[in-house]
Design a binder for these strands. Structure first.
Lengths: 251, 251
DNA sequence: CGCTGTCTTGAGAGTCCTCAACCGTGGTGG
DNA sequence: CCACCACGGTTGAGGACTCTCAAGACAGCG
């Protein structure tokens, strides 16, 4: 593959910007597991070289921040492996996580000249990095890419609006249920979902405290709606009731 | 001008979809006051006829709903006058207002095949309506329009993320202060801002109850940070302190 | 084995919500 | 002309949900 900004065993630190050397492997796009779900699917096979040479691959270890809120927006990113959290901070340290971006997600849509958010790796993350001018050149050359990006933005907007409904009007119970279902939808065909992020991350995503998240999960466990599945995994025991809960149709 | 779906004195009703006849006036785009701020600014003057003939103008009276959550997304809208509220509902009636769209705002970005939100006129509203196929034809013919739409989506996303921070992490006091500043920024050059919406709307926008909104405004009034300015207007007396408040840097 | 970090659980406090009364305005009709 | 009602807004008292503070459980790791 290519560059490793820092080995995996580096102590996870916040606000350490990762740099990377150029990627020599031009063919990585063809083998990219996230391509089908990402904006890159708008590029035809025979143009993949062009795409590949525009991107630089990066590895980011867990807990490492690679976009700092308010810094100049020079790069755009595409997640190919792992999970990234996007967040905003208030001056006194209160944090709101805007979302968790998995493989295929494009980072940098909500951007003017400065990033409007920070980004940090949840687990071991792999990224494609595009510089601003390179991305614009790609957009000029591939109109389909631009349309795909607009679609991506629309999806983000839908997700953001659902999250506003959650944060503004749902109870703690409903928020946790909604979150579990959202995670579940990312794990196709199984009744198991993965929660790579910490309780703190979940709390900052749902606008709650870690204690409330923990208590709520315990209650759901006690009520046999979910069960532990080892590691950072949960098993869904009663998805229907959970869905009712998430929409406020049940107590 | 053109069609009037219903006279102004009609009793304001929710969930009444407005229909409209075709607009005969092809030149309306050239005179449109909202054009400079809207996506239509991406269209050159000599192509305005093309744009104008693709759009249908509509008038919507206050309290009238013209997009219903979950209904088929056949049309896109551009606000040219007045204020529109976009909202989502939970089954039991809890409501979250996603935003207030003023002149120049484009509605329908967050859309797949069904609308993901409802839309209702706050005051007397004027809209341009585009059918889905017509808009796509416009996008094919005017690539600049597509890029402008992407920029619009980015701005929406930034606004949505700020709102998530507000809903997830700010106190009632901070929310109201943030809201007042947001409204203030729409009224250039004066220390007066307009609140065409009701307390209920403000509450549903900020994730609070009308009582809390009312109480908080009263407190700010008592503290001489704001003052009444007649009608649905407020005067900002101490913008700096209000800004500190909004960011959680003051009590 | 003890350390550290994450998670869990408990008790009390606080912010905001709920319920309720009251006020002011505008429209209606006797 | 004014009583009446509807509606939006304000204010108060009490309650509830979630937060804060604190202690303990558990796992990973040097």
């Amino acid at each position: 593959m290519s560059d490793l900004p820092s080995p995996g065993q580096e102590p996870p630190r916040r606000f350490v910007v990762q740099t990377a050397r150029t990627a020599s492997d031009m063919a990585h796009c063809a083998k990219c597991g996230a391509r089908a779900q990402s904006v890159c699917s708008a590029i035809e096979d025979h143009d993949l070289d062009r795409l590949g040479s525009s991107a630089i691959q990066m590895n980011v270890p867990p807990g490492c921040s690679f976009i700092e809120d308010g810094s100049d927006a020079i790069d755009f990113f595409n997640v190919t492996e792992g999970t990234v959290k996007l967040y905003k901070l208030l001056p006194d340290g209160r944090r709101q996580i805007m979302g968790f971006a998995g493989p295929g997600h494009f980072l940098g849509l909500a951007v003017s000249d400065q990033y409007a958010f920070g980004a940090e790796a949840v687990d071991q993350v792999r990224l494609c990095r595009f510089s601003r001018p390179r991305l614009h050149r790609l957009l000029d050359d591939f109109p389909r890419l631009e349309r795909r990006l607009l679609k991506e933005a629309s999806n983000e907007l839908v997700a953001a609006q659902n999250q506003m409904l959650l944060l503004g009007r749902k109870t703690a119970r409903e928020r946790v249920a909604s979150f579990l279902l959202e995670r579940w939808n990312r794990c196709p065909q199984t009744d198991v979902l993965s929660l790579p992020m910490t309780r703190t991350d979940i709390a900052d995503y749902l606008g709650l405290t870690i204690e409330t998240v923990s208590r709520t999960l315990s209650t759901l466990r006690r009520e046999k709606l979910i069960a532990d599945a080892g590691g950072h995994n949960l098993r869904i025991l009663d998805g229907e009731r959970l869905a009712e809960l998430a929409e406020g149709e049940a107590s």
